[in-house]
Amino acid sequence: MLASDDTILAQAEAWRRAGKGVALATVIETWGSAPRPVGSHLVIDEDGLFLGSVSGGCVEGAVVSEAADVIVDGKARTLEFGVADETAWRVGLSCGGRIRVYVERVD
């Protein structure tokens, strides 16, 4: 099933109400040919299940693992991905764009 923003945010609420730790990632800025527009969401639960996307699949793995830390410490953080960050994150956007992703816990 293709997930729309409706189902993504509804899933975030449902997971939280079920007592799970949940993080919400949002694309807040893009440069160049970024794959997903500003405002795109990825929701992640404490078990690493996720729905939605912040890129075309290039950086989701890194966001999901960072989300695990956010769920534990509750501190929101901004991640940046792009061609220049390959050494930092070992992931990059093959399209050559750059994105910033805000990851926050659902409390």
Partner: peptide
């Protein structure tokens, strides 16, 4: 995000009303 904000956001969407979350 607080759960009550998320919940209100989802409720507004279901009611076909626009809303803005300011962070």
């Amino acid at each position: 995000m607080r759960l009550d904000l998320l919940s209100t956001l989802n409720a507004e969407r279901a009611a076909r009303r626009a809303a803005v979350l300011v962070t």
